[in-house]
Design a protein around this nucleic acid. Structure first.
Lengths: 254, 254
DNA sequence: CTTGACATTAACGCTGCGTAAAGGTTTAGA
DNA sequence: TCTAAACCTTTACGCAGCGTTAATGTCAAG
């Protein structure tokens, strides 16, 4: 049986380029060249190619394969043992690499988490300081130093998750409050739902809940320009509406 | 501080070719080019090179490194995680390769051992056949068929190691015998040692030992031309000397 | 002014082919 | 018999990351 490049290529599952290259580097020469210059391979070449591909699959270099199959004195087992040693060395290096990459990733992640945590801690300190400056005096007057200190303490102990939850809750309250405001009814379901959520929100910052404190805070939302501006930002009158809803929710309307 | 290529190369432990190449592929361009066309690097470039080399040590390709360090939006941790995945894949393939190479080596060795074993078996058969042809008749006459059959059986069951040991012992006997022969005294220490070793050697081939058989064999060494030629090869008279030594050793001298 | 130590660009080489490009040969069908 | 498709050929660039000449220009020291 005789084969042209393509026939052999298909038989062996390699490209014709590969066969020409193997001819070029002298690892597998065709049995003969026909009158048109075509490469013609015989059975012996098929067998040899099988061997070549076998060693190639084991990752042996073509140069080494050449030595193995071309010199009958060359011991394939010894050659493979050499090859094996090389591969083990390679794997060792690869293991080192992988370990280093893992270490680096961990270190980067560690730094990010640290930075993130530190940022958050600093952020909370700022809030506490600002709260003190803004509302410290009046609230301290109204509810006493201990209540304020405990509130700050609670904030300081807050985790990122709790803080995010509180923030989300605040956003939700604003949304529901905006809807409720359209109904114009502070006693309605939506307004009361807002008041309920506002109570939940408060528990994130206040050490304990009391109807009186909640109602007091509601009144302050109207009296204090800073709170009022926050709630009235989108819709003027929202602060007063929230106060009314809370007074109804707590059952403390005068 | 400003650096020329070589200064920076020495500082960072790379070749100047590497720096020029990094310039060429746009991964690290010098801060400026002086009037003579020399590359001049500044502190920023030193820092950048450190980063490049760091990632290079982790096996990241220069193309990827370029992305990592040139785009601030690019997340190094994500890039490294990608790289990590690639490395794990590589190691998996390498493990497969190694396993296959090991399998192949084992299979080759197995074949060799088998061949070796088969060869040894054939070799033993030959010895037995030859022994039968050479000495079978007379020894069978003297010691009976059973003894011979059991001797052959023992030989057939011999392992390569036992056979080698027997061969070495035979060589040792010849050496000591040669020394002893020089003393001319078959009752001397050396000659008796040779007789002792000869007894050990016999146990490799004979199913059981008896002084009589040993002495009989010794006598045969002199009577039979083939044995005689073997022992007298180096020194004529050695066969008779060994017989005398064995007769003394067994205490059966007439 | 020379010498030696620097600098430059341009180029090939390594591995194992993939992928054109430019052209000749064979084969099958109209 | 002619043509088109399917072969075949050689030549050569490209890939990654530099090492290694080669040919040539520049600078500081003696």
């Amino acid at each position: 049986m005789e084969y042209t490049v393509q026939k052999l290529a298909k038989l062996a599952g390699v490209s014709t380029r590969t066969l020409r290259y193997y001819d070029e580097i002298g690892i597998l020469k065709p049995a003969r060249i026909n009158s048109s210059g075509y490469r013609i391979y015989g059975q012996a070449e098929v067998d040899k190619l099988q061997q070549i591909l076998f060693y190639r699959e084991l990752g042996v270099s073509l140069a080494d394969i050449k030595e193995i199959i071309n010199s009958p004195s060359f011991n394939p087992a010894d050659a493979l043992r050499e090859h094996h040693k090389k591969l083990l060395k390679k794997r060792k290096q690869l293991d080192l690499l992988i370990a280093n990459v893992e270490k680096t990733i961990n270190s980067i992640e560690g730094r990010i988490k640290m930075t993130d945590k530190e940022k958050f801690e600093g952020f909370k300190q700022e809030i506490i300081a600002e709260n003190e400056k803004k509302f410290g005096r009046e609230i301290r007057k109204k509810y006493g130093d201990k209540a304020i200190d405990r509130s700050n303490e609670k904030l300081r102990k807050m985790t990122r998750e709790q803080y995010n939850a509180a923030e989300n809750l605040a956003k939700q309250i604003m949304e529901i409050l905006a809807e409720a405001f359209k109904t114009g009814d502070p006693a309605g379901d939506l307004a009361q739902k807002a008041a309920e959520l506002h109570k939940q929100w408060l528990t994130y910052y206040w050490p304990e809940y009391s109807k009186e404190a909640h109602a007091g805070l509601a009144q302050m939302y109207v009296d204090d320009e800073r709170f009022k501006a926050y709630y009235d930002k989108e819709q003027p009158g929202t602060a007063a509406f929230l106060r009314d809803a809370i007074l109804i929710y707590t059952g403390l309307q005068k």
